[in-house]
Amino acid sequence: MDCLAFACLAGVTLVCALAVVTLRNVLHSALFLGLSLAGVAGLFASLGADFLFAAQILIYVSGIAVLVLFVVLMAGRHSELHLRQTNKQWLPALAVAGLALWSVTKVAQGFRIEAPSLRQPTTRALGKLLMGDFAVPFELVSLILIAALIGAIVFTRPETE
């Protein structure tokens, strides 16, 4: 049962990711990106990381994927739907991606370990950690988000001379 769930989630994630990078229509790519991120959320759930599952759904699937979709709809043209969307460098890109994949699988050979028994829900411990040992990085992240917010407003503001 565990195996089946993992295979389904990994299959959805990887097939949708492939669709993201190969489809011509950018709108379809953005929709498949949302589905692939939802698959990653399912993998988080299969790892027992319940808060990460919720955060992935909230931040990625309903935040970032929708944002990308908005920009695709605003900056896209109808005439571009059938243009080639990839450049001519696919062979070197394939080599780089293959090298990354080969090295990761090589390292993974040394980690053939089974999961320990299922632990407790993580949300409470995570909250205590973020408010205790990780309080300073937590505040720094809020600073980064404020900076990103201001930067986005400055970049998209219409120029008034």
């Binding site: 990078v21 990839t86 450049n87 990761v104």
Partner: peptide, 10 residues
Amino acid sequence: AIGVFGALTR
């Protein structure tokens, strides 16, 4: 690897 391929070829 899929992400690297997409970022390099798009």
